[in-house]
């Protein structure tokens, strides 16, 4: 009985030592995270005191936005519709481009020497923000919504190929094998074995990207790529904060409406 109790005690001591040793890497990770944030704090010149110091300035600035001015509502709505049109075409072109590229970027479909170059190109498209693309296209094709469409197309393609290829990689390989056994080639295997499985996810992701592109399209207008962003920038530059608030309110309402609508659609599809 005594020896059994001693044995249990030894086991408990051993387990405690093992648990203590396992904790060290966790402490180190937390220390690294803390150091990283401290380093970033200096770089970003974080100054919480300034928030309190300049609070009266901020309050008078915010007061300028109220009440929102809706006198130019018809123009705002017209520009907002253009923004939605930019988002629609940017997303559609990106989805159409991404569908074949997603198969080429999926490790379970294409060989590594195809996958790696395609993925790196898509990394580059994602790394460059829509607003940078918009500035470049404004120079290339002139001011207006077309530059916005091209900017969204390129950036969204980078995002969609990544997301689409990840769903392809998690697809069930068995239907693909069945098509292969029936004599189906590479494209037939992708179209029948994989596409029916990934399609609901792709539609859901495309709807999400459309929502996100409506938000992005409002920003790229600021650099001259058309839409409501153009109007917003015009009012901000002329310190007309009442009208700025009116435009922001329209943007918020439309983005929320699209968000709710696409959420409903996604629920039905997936």
């Amino acid at each position: 009985m005594m020896s059994q109790a001693r044995e249990i005690g030894e086991i408990n001591r051993h387990e405690k030592n093992v648990a203590e040793k396992r904790r060290w890497p966790v402490y180190l990770i937390w220390a690294a995270v803390f150091i990283l944030h401290a380093w970033a704090w200096r770089g970003t010149e974080m100054d919480p005191v300034a928030l309190i110091e300049y609070s009266s300035n901020m309050a008078s600035f915010a007061a300028g936005f109220f009440p929102p001015d809706f006198h130019n509502l018809s123009r705002t709505i017209h520009e907002m519709l253009i923004t939605c049109q930019i988002a629609l075409w940017g997303t559609t072109l990106a989805v159409l481009t991404s569908a074949p590229l997603a198969f080429l970027a999926a490790g379970n479909v294409a060989p590594w020497w195809v996958v790696q170059p395609v993925r790196r190109c898509m990394d580059a498209l994602r790394a460059i923000n829509e607003i940078v693309f918009a500035m470049l296209f404004v120079v290339a094709v002139g001011l207006g919504p077309f530059a916005g469409v091209l900017a969204l197309w390129l950036h969204t393609t980078g995002v969609c190929v990544k997301l689409f290829s990840e769903t392809v990689e998690t697809a069930d390989p068995r239907p693909v094998e069945a098509i292969r056994m029936a004599g189906g080639g590479f494209i037939a295997r992708a179209l029948h074995g994989l596409l029916p499985q990934v399609m609901p996810h792709w539609i859901s992701l495309s709807l999400y990207r459309f929502e996100s592109n409506v938000r992005s399209a409002t920003v790229i207008g600021i650099v001259g790529a058309g839409g409501v962003g153009d109007l917003l920038w015009e009012y901000i530059r002329s310190f007309d904060y009442g009208r700025t608030a009116g435009v922001i309110a329209v943007i918020v309402v439309v983005v929320c409406a699209i968000d709710v609508l696409s959420q409903q659609l996604r629920r039905r599809i997936v």
Binding site: P175, I179, A182, H192, P196, Q197, M199
Partner: peptide, 18 residues
């Protein structure tokens, strides 16, 4: 290993894909 979203006939016809 059928394709869930396809009809029974389409699944059967896929045997002729070769």
């Amino acid at each position: 290993n059928l394709i869930d979203r396809y009809s029974v006939l389409t699944n059967t016809l896929l045997g002729a894909i070769g």
